[in-house]
Nucleic acid binder design. Structure first.
Length: 879
RNA sequence: GGGCUCUUAGCUCAGCUGGUUCAGAGCACCUGCCUUACAAGCAGGGGGUCACUGGUUCGAAUCCAGUAGGGCCCA
């Protein structure tokens, strides 16, 4: 075998990814095998790969590659979403650079621009995923704005409308004045902001009295239509039925009473601005108040703002505060911390705003989704703790505002034929709409020019909530082969931040449109943070360049680095050192391979006993570890599965096994042993492949020239070897013996090359099945003597109840030997005391299970024996 | 303000239905080694009142209550 001395990740990764693609290993089509399906959480089409994506997709790749090895028909569907707000913001930004405004373009012209942008930037992120090694079925790549995907969305809208679940409502919505669109509640982030609480005095009509209210938003007084007091508040009883004059505008508004008012907050007297606060809106509705909207869509003031018309809300806040002060209306200000809603996308402060929007009723849709997760456990969340969060949201679910005042997305399929609120029809296309409208109005001469489609588009999540169905064409053609084969999918891997946005809604659409769950397991990853626990963000600049990491540490190294510290649901504190560890691991395996491949193989050399026991032992160890790994995977503890693999390969395979089978310098290895070593190496590669696909495939192909259908990526997951527990226990004891010998070498400055002899108090039975050969080889021991009571001029150590002696040249330091023995003795005596304490406690002996008592008794016996040997050694030394 | 959740070694975290899997892992740290696969390595080692206070129990990191301090979600 001709092996390069250095592992060149960059070259290897490019080569094997290409090979995998050329051979279509990632492509799936329905067949007689069981499917294993994952749909990717579609990233934003114009985004770039960040650490969150890397983690997320590494986990998906681990799962899908393992499933592929296990013989499932593995299908990982990739794709992107159109991200209305983000993409539209970017397109608007680009227009601005050219001195253009969105309103300068027609809708179609604007959409052309958006498509241009998508074509230029879209797919970058998918190319980056390939660098990471993602084994997606690229032939299936979908985009939420593909024709069939959009058609699915429109069909679902029409269907839900016809079922009475979609309605148009005039509601208080979250308005993003920068993007000039509404946002769903979930897209609003509440932040604490330091602000001022303004105390304003409103003159009471027809008296000299003034009533003081407290507000954080003095500019909204221009939209006030009432003052509200608590009917139980005796301070204001005398004001009942009176009116006050709004400062600056001079409008006269009523004083109303409602128990909603918190008497403790501020002055206990509340200004009511129904157009700009959702609670005030409710009060207004209840008391039949006028609604005065003082803002334009960019949150500058309109004509109700009087002399502030055209100015921004924050500028007006300062200016009106000054005016109020000058005119004597401002009593005082206090600093005040309050929560302000901001846009997830644009960071703009959200303005509550009344407008016509489309809503989806959630209550009936939520019902099966609640049961599936919390009752029937048809769908499992990992980690389970998220079920509480899920429950809380689902049980308090509110209707979903699905319209957005944007152009980039699926246009709401509602067609208006008149000015009345109900003068519209909903249909999949204009022709059907026309037909419906003619029927509804009885006006047969109505034509398309009399129809006006709603200008708004649908929320991007209204596309992605159908994702597991629509990628397989399950909405447009519910009986097609693909959807029947691949749906429901198996695992979903995503972040907890979109548990409601996306996961919960997919579950709802799944039951509504397939009458079946969309996936069985939901693995929620942690957020990737930096080592100071800060969220990774562009503005902080603490997010490492994903591709640079891959080029520095190799994709395998980065994958290992990310996975090692990402216990499910725990945030991952990213540290480049972890990638370094991953790279180091790759290097370790590479060198192990170089060692093995450098051995000269002899046909005639018989397999030594030590190699024979080594092989038996490693098989057992492999079996034991595979059981652990299976268990970890079953619980979605991917990092633990990796750590178990890491220790198996590094500690057990490299440090113990290879050292045992390694032929003496200049000697060949027996053919039998060599073949066994290679076979075990291959089993390691299979287990490791999901985590480190490139390195493992490369070594696999170096081991021997293989036909294309024998690539590692499509080989088979190891069957679990039988575990010989007795052998594992014996070996564990042997490692302690070897460790004892090594410690003596170190203490006495004896080089490993220098041979030693070992004397043991037992009769050799503790070294069953050639384990003595292991001691000899790894301890560099020439002779083992059994049934020894004591050896003059030797250093001793104990493993279990047995004592071992190593004769050393020169004088033994009796003092320090005795010191060590005394320490051991006092520890053992202390231990004995605690065990006897338990055993002498009647209630323990009577109440504890027999097994536990027996264990304690065994401990007592073992410790007594140990104490005896230590005492003997001490007295021997003392002679 | 409401709900959920967490606090274990210097760091990041395991520790299941209380009992030798009970105090662990990885990294970091310290001490030897350039031993012919690997110094990105090998061998050895130190390090924790399991946040605090009570309770239940023969027995508590584990169960219960309270306190303190983080985090998340919602209003």
């Amino acid at each position: 075998m001709n092996i390069p001395s250095k592992y060149d990740a960059a070259e290897v990764e490019g080569k094997w990814y290409k090979y995998w693609l050329e051979n279509g290993y990632f492509h799936s089509k329905p067949d007689e095998r069981k499917p294993y399906t994952i749909v990717i959480p579609p990233p934003n089409v114009t985004g770039v790969l960040h650490m969150g994506h890397m983690l997320n997709n590494t986990i998906q790749d681990v799962l899908i590659r393992r499933a592929r090895l296990q013989g499932f028909n593995a299908c990982w569907v990739p794709g992107t979403d159109h991200a209305s707000i983000a993409t539209e913001a970017k397109v608007v930004g680009r227009l601005k650079e050219r001195g253009l405004k969105k309103s300068d373009l027609t809708r179609d012209e604007f959409l052309d621009q958006a498509w241009d942008w998508t074509r230029e930037h879209g797919g970058i992120i998918l190319e980056q995923l390939k660098k990471l090694g993602a084994s997606c079925d690229w032939d299936r790549t979908k985009f939420t704005m593909d024709d069939d995907m959009s058609a699915s969305v429109i069909r679902v809208f029409v269907d839900l409308f016809n079922k009475g679940l979609i309605y148009r409502g005039y509601r208080m919505v979250n308005w993003d004045p920068e993007a000039k669109t509404t946002l769903s509640d979930e897209e609003v982030i509440h932040e604490e902001r330091q602000g001022l609480l303004y105390y304003l005095a409103y003159p009471v009509e027809g008296s000299d009295e003034k009533v003081v209210i407290a507000t954080t938003r003095p500019e909204t007084i221009l939209g006030d239509t009432a003052i509200c007091i608590n009917p139980a508040d005796e301070r204001y009883t005398h004001l009942k039925g009176k009116k006050v004059i709004v400062p600056v505008s001079g409008r006269v508004i009523p004083i109303i009473e409602d128990e909603y008012v918190d008497m403790e907050f501020g002055t206990g007297c509340l200004k009511v601005t129904p157009a700009h606060d959702v609670n005030d809106k409710n009060l207004g509705d209840k008391h039949g108040l006028e609604v005065i909207d003082i803002f334009n869509e960019d949150a500058s003031l309109n004509h109700h703002g009087l002399h502030y018309e055209g100015k921004d809300r924050f500028a007006v806040r300062k200016e009106i505060a000054r005016e109020l002060e000058e005119k004597g209306f401002l009593v005082k200000t206090e600093t005040h911390v309050n929560k302000v809603g901001t846009s997830e996308r644009t960071k703009a402060v959200i303005e509550p705003r009344l407008s016509d929007q489309w809503f989806l009723k959630m209550e009936t849709l939520a019902r099966p989704a609640i049961e599936a997760v919390l009752k029937d456990e048809e769908i499992k969340l990992f980690p389970k703790k998220f079920e509480n969060t899920y429950r809380h949201w689902m049980e308090n679910i509110r209707d979903w505002n699905i319209s957005r005042q944007l152009w980039w997305g699926q246009q709401v399929p509602a067609y208006y034929y008149g000015e009345g609120k109900e003068d519209f029809v909903v249909a999949e296309n204009q022709e059907q709409a026309l037909e419906l409208a003619r029927k509804k109005t009885g006006n047969t001469s109505l034509d398309v020019s009399g129809l006006r489609q709603d200008p708004d588009v649908l929320d991007t999540w209204f596309s992605s909530w159908l994702w597991p169905i629509s990628v397989f064409g399950g909405i447009l053609d519910p009986e097609n082969e693909e959807i029947k084969y691949y749906y429901p999918t198996n695992d979903l891997v995503t972040g907890p931040d979109i548990l409601f946005f996306w996961v919960a809604r997919m579950i709802m659409s799944g039951y509504e449109y397939r009458n079946e769950k969309p996936f069985t397991n939901v693995y929620l990853t942690g957020l990737v943070r930096d080592s100071q626990r800060r969220k990774m963000s562009k503005s902080l600049g603490n997010s490492p360049d994903a591709l640079k990491l891959i080029s520095d540490y190799g994709a395998d190294g980065v994958r290992v680095g990310l996975l090692l510290s990402s216990a499910a649901g725990n945030d991952l504190l990213f540290d480049e050192g972890l990638c370094q560890q991953g790279k180091g691991f790759a290097n370790k395996i590479w060198n192990a391979f170089r060692l093995v491949s450098g051995w000269e193989v002899s046909e005639t050399e018989p397999a030594p006993k030590v190699a024979e026991v080594a092989v038996r032992w490693y098989r057992s160890k492999l079996g034991q570890t595979l059981h652990e790994i299976e268990d970890h995977f079953a619980k979605y503890r991917i990092s633990d599965a990796l750590m178990a693999t890491y220790k198996l390969i590094w500690d057990d395979f490299c440090s113990w096994f290879l050292e045992m089978v390694k032929p003496a310098y200049g000697h060949p290895i027996s053919k039998t042993t060599f073949e066994q070593v290679i076979a075990l190496f291959e089993e390691n590669l299979k287990i490791l492949h999901p985590f480190m696909p490139f390195l493992t495939e490369d070594i696999w192909q170096h081991i021997e020239k293989r036909d294309s259908d024998k690539a590692l990526v499509v080989s088979d997951w190891p069957s679990i070897p039988e575990v010989d527990h007795g052998l594992l226990e014996g070996f564990a004891m042997v490692t302690e013996v070897i460790s004892g010998i090594r410690t003596i070498r170190k203490d006495k400055n004896i080089a490993f090359k220098e041979v030693l002899e070992l004397h043991a108090t037992h009769n050799g039975s503790a070294f069953n099945g050639n384990l003595d050969e292991v001691v000899k080889k790894l301890g560099n021991i020439t002779a083992l003597h059994y049934n020894i009571e004591k050896v003059e001029g030797s250093v001793s150590f104990r493993v279990g109840a047995d004592e071992y002696f190593v004769p050393v040249a020169g004088s033994v330091d009796v003092e320090s030997e005795m010191e060590k023995l005394k320490e051991e003795l006092s520890y053992a005596e202390g231990f004995l005391k605690s065990v006897r304490g338990k055993l002498s406690n009647e209630r323990f002996v009577n109440n504890a299970p027999e097994k536990v008592v027996a264990i304690e008794k065994q401990k007592e016996a073992d410790t007594l024996a140990k104490i005896l040997t230590i005492k003997e050694s001490l007295s021997n030394l003392g002679k």
